[in-house]
Structure formats: structure tokens, C-alpha cells
Write a protein that binds this DNA or RNA. Structure first.
Lengths: 106, 106
DNA sequence: TTAACATATCTATTATTCTAGATATATATA
DNA sequence: TATATATATCTAGAATAATAGATATGTTAA
């Protein structure tokens, strides 16, 4: 299968060069078992709110927000606003395209 | 296929977070078309000598040597000494294991 | 419309990476 | 054995990343 996606190997590798950011991506693979249920909505369709990710990672709010922004810039995650919360979910297309690119180019 | 290899996702990602190091790995995939023939030996069985890699990358000798050491620490390349030259070749097992690990864990 | 809350951005400090020049080490050769 | 060559390591300055506190922004609720 061919993924026609713009994505930058170096930029994505920089994201993956930090173990907290790798953990976040892994946690988002299965929100149900890694996070408590959201109070305002009864699903994880759009991912997980920043506060839960921050609590689980054990780093400051600003650090996690910065991490998520860098992951969003690399298009590894997609943010969705619901009321006062921002939910982040994985961008599976880019993640697959990155792995595919490594497998063929690297 | 299962690769039972010790390798560190974060450490390898740090290597891949630099475009010169990614280029070196790619060049080493096909030494014949990326480098001139060696003068002392008539093959690339053990990879390419540091000097050729340095010349192609256009960075200083110490920088390239440092890069190659970090790549060796991450087990992405394997050094072989022949006389006064050190040849570096790709460690295909670790590279495959890394991509496999991303595909399953990430 | 004010207060509370969730998240993003700004500012600053510390840690790490990048990079090259200088020096050291190992090998080969005169 | 002295010298040249290839590579590795040491040292240091500049650039970037990590991290948190303070502040700003946007949203909800009283």
C-alpha cells in the first residue's frame, strides 16, 4: 500500500527522540485503558484532553502543551476543540506513512 | 517475521533526528553508486571508509567521526578495521528491528 | 459580566546537541 | 625508528531542546 503523505522524516524523528512524546503516542493508541473517562463526553473519538495527558506524564502543563504542539506541527496528532477542552488523537495516516517511508527509503 | 534484537527506540530516533546521519545510512545502502572505489580493497563488503563519508557529507572529520560513533552506539552501523582505515556498514538487523518495533509498538 | 477553568504562549534557566579545531592513537611505510 | 596517514577523542563555543512559572486567550457557568 502506498501512502501519499507529506511528512518530514527528520522532524518526526525529533518528536520520537523524546520518551515522553513516544509514550503519549502509545497511550493515545488505547485511550480507554490508559485514561479515565471524560466527564463531558462519553467517548474518545477525538482523543484525550490535555489535562489527562499531563497528569499521566507527570510534567508541567506548559511542557505537555509544548510537546503536543510540536507533535501537531509534525502532523502526528490532530487536535479537536470541544468547549474548553482540546482533545488530541493520533494521525494514523502520517504515522503509517512515516513507518512506510523508513521501510522503503532508510 | 520477528526480530529479537535489543534496541532503543529513543536512541535510534535521536540518530535519525539529524538529516546528515539519515543521509549516511541511505548512502551506505548502495556504496557502489554513492562512493568512489576504495584504493586498498576492491569491494564494499565491510562498508565505506570514514574519509569518503566525510567528503560526501561536507562536514569536518571530527563531526563525522562523532556521528559514526553515535550511530555505532545505537548499533545502526558496524565498524571494521582494515589497516589504517575503518569501514562502516549498515546493521540491517537493527534497522529492520527498529522499523518493526515502530510498526508494532508505536 | 464576572469568575473559574482548560489550554496556549511567553520568558527564562538548565541541559543537550552541533560543530570544528586541536590533540591523541593506531597503522603503515620510508 | 621517524614520518605520514586515517580515525578517534578532547575541548570549547554556538545553537537547540527541555522544562517550568507566569501570563494570555478562549470557553463555560454563576
Amino acid at each position: 500500500m502506498l501512502y501519499i503523505c507529506h511528512m518530514n522524516i527528520t522532524e518526526i524523528s525529533k518528536v520520537l527522540a523524546n520518551s515522553t512524546r513516544v509514550s503519549i503516542l502509545k497511550w493515545l493508541k488505547d485511550p480507554e485503558s490508559n485514561f479515565p473517562p471524560h466527564k463531558d463526553i462519553d467517548h474518545f473519538n477525538d482523543g484525550v484532553c490535555v489535562g489527562y495527558i499531563q497528569e499521566k506524564a507527570g510534567l508541567s502543563q506548559s511542557t505537555i502543551s509544548t510537546y503536543l504542539t510540536s507533535m501537531q506541527n509534525a502532523e502526528l496528532v490532530i487536535p479537536t476543540r470541544h468547549g474548553k477542552w482540546t482533545y488530541y488523537k493520533r494521525n494514523e495516516a502520517i504515522i503509517s506513512a512515516y513507518i512506510e517511508a523508513l521501510a522503503t527509503e532508510l
